[in-house]
Structure formats: C-alpha cells, structure tokens
C-alpha cells in the first residue's frame, strides 16, 4: 500500500506544481488546492498506514484489545484540512475580487507592485 500512496503523493505534488506555474490565477488556486491535498496525503502516508480498530479502550479495561490505529495523524490532518479549507475559501474570494479589479485572468498583467 505504501509504494502506491507514495506514487500518488508524488503525482499530486507534480500536478500541483505544474498548475501553479501556469499564468492563469484560477490555475494557481487549483494548484494550491492540490498542493494542500498532497501535503495531507503525505502526512497520512508518512505516519504509517496500519489496519487497526478504532483506538477506543473498552469499558473496564486498561488498554485497547488488539491492534488499534494511531488517532493522532488523523486528528492533525483533520485540523490541517479545516485550515486549508478556510484559507482556500479566502483565496477564492480574493481571486474573484482581483479579477474584477484587474479584468484579466493572467498573472503577467499583475506586475504593478513588482518594479
């Protein structure tokens, strides 16, 4: 399973970088979305893919019966997903407003602040 996930993560990163290098702002945002998904997948894969029961200790016992999954990466990835959800929602509002102001979906026309 791990090699498959590793390849998937690699492809997602590559796609994200490719999209971000385009001139279109919309593609830039798509690239950023893919990048955050790739990072989350990487986190998920790197912290170990194990088959296990939910990490809940039965009533009366001191430790869980049998192998359980590590809940921490899932909690962390959930946090990261929520955060990138918020940031990307903001980025969408931003590119919409930017499009209204600049009237172009082209990063090359956005160099007023660069010189």
């Amino acid at each position: 399973m791990e090699p498959l996930m590793a390849v998937l993560v690699g492809i997602t990163f590559a796609t994200a970088v490719y999209m971000m290098l385009r001139r279109s702002i919309v593609k830039l945002i798509i690239g950023l979305t893919l990048l955050s998904n790739a990072a989350n997948l990487l986190f998920f894969t790197a912290s170990g893919l194990t088959r296990g029961a939910p990490p809940i200790i039965p009533e009366g016992a001191e430790q869980p019966a049998g192998a359980v999954a590590d809940p921490l990466p899932q909690a962390l990835i959930l946090t990261a997903i929520v955060i990138s959800f918020g940031v990307l929602a903001f980025a969408l509002v931003l590119i919409r407003k930017a499009y209204q102001v600049v009237q172009a979906d082209d990063l090359d026309q956005m160099k007023d602040t660069d010189t």
Partner: peptide
C-alpha cells in the same frame, strides 16, 4: 461561512 458566501453572492 455565511460571511464569505454572502459577500460573494452580493458581488
């Protein structure tokens, strides 16, 4: 969520 969506819809 509603702040974002309403501002988008108003635009």
């Amino acid at each position: 969520m509603l702040t974002i969506v309403i501002s988008l819809a108003e635009a």
